[in-house]
Design a protein around this nucleic acid. Structure first.
Lengths: 157, 157
DNA sequence: CTGCCTGCAAACTCTTTGCACGAAT
DNA sequence: ATTCGTGCAAAGAGTTTGCAGGCAG
């Protein structure tokens, strides 16, 4: 009988705001709604555009100021693929460990479950007297179909 | 009877320049020497300073223009830990697959051999119809000693 | 009413680029 | 003599921040 994922996330976000004595503003809610509606990885700039579609008073600064609260509350996941540009993605299962496979031809990002990552992080950190905070595993790969046919099916599909 | 690692690397770099019809200039050699003398991860800015100590005519632009040749020839490895800032490190064994453990308290980067990475990259890429180009595995971790004593021994040591 | 939140635009950091001069081949 | 490489400074991309006014609580 649990609510829809978006309802859970909305509550989680509001709880996070409350817990940190942060105000619930229309802009913050619009940014949350825009972010959580995404099916693909989006950039801050794209998030701004989407949020403005819901509330045209949202500014770029507020998007950047809100993103840490969204990631901090666990409703959004930040993905940095080394491009001086971060991507964001609704975090539907915050306990999952995921790796990314990034197509260097079309920039599509595939999320792959990789539960061994946290085991690895633990093992290797402990040896150094450290406690793991987070880990990331990313594979950059080129598109076979593109090389063969000139068309990257991931982009098209 | 092989030469010292730095000699091998210097030859490798010169061969790369020759193979691409690039000229061997004092600036490029100074940047190479400065980079390969490093024992720790350095930034482009630090590399500029070190290279200028060897040849004060080296400019920031030339450092940035030379870095791709250094990484492309395999004598330097680029490490991106998601900080809008790249680190560079002499690549003494270009066949090694390494992961990084990054101390979030002192920013020290530990390089850890992780040979299974390329196996993972292959496995997961192939399933998607992709050919792996590179992979990275990074663990961010906090310092236990710092938490206990207020001193991060990695920084000090 | 109080103080956090906001939009705007300027500032910031790292990196890239256009241009005219200078050096490698 | 050519042509590529260089330094300089300005531009560029993404993100952050100072400020004056606005809205949540």
């Amino acid at each position: 009988m649990s609510s829809a994922p978006i309802e859970d996330a909305r509550l989680k976000f509001r709880a996070h705001l409350a817990a940190h004595s942060l105000r619930i503003t229309n802009q913050r809610l619009a940014i949350f709604d825009a972010a959580f509606a995404q099916k693909e990885h989006i950039t801050a700039e794209e998030l701004l555009a989407q949020a403005r579609a819901l509330d045209d008073s949202v500014s770029r600064a507020t998007v950047y100021r809100t993103l840490p609260h969204l990631t901090g509350s666990g409703v959004l996941r930040e993905v940095d693929i080394g491009k001086n540009l971060k991507y964001y993605l609704p975090n539907t299962d915050s306990s999952a460990q995921v790796a990314q496979v990034i197509c260097v031809d079309c920039d599509k990002i595939f999320e792959i479950s990789a539960p061994f990552m946290s085991w690895y992080g633990n093992t290797v950190s402990t040896k150094l007297g450290l406690t793991p905070v987070s880990q990331r595993l990313q594979v950059s790969a080129s598109c076979d179909t593109l090389k063969a046919t000139g068309i990257c099916k991931h982009r098209a599909g």
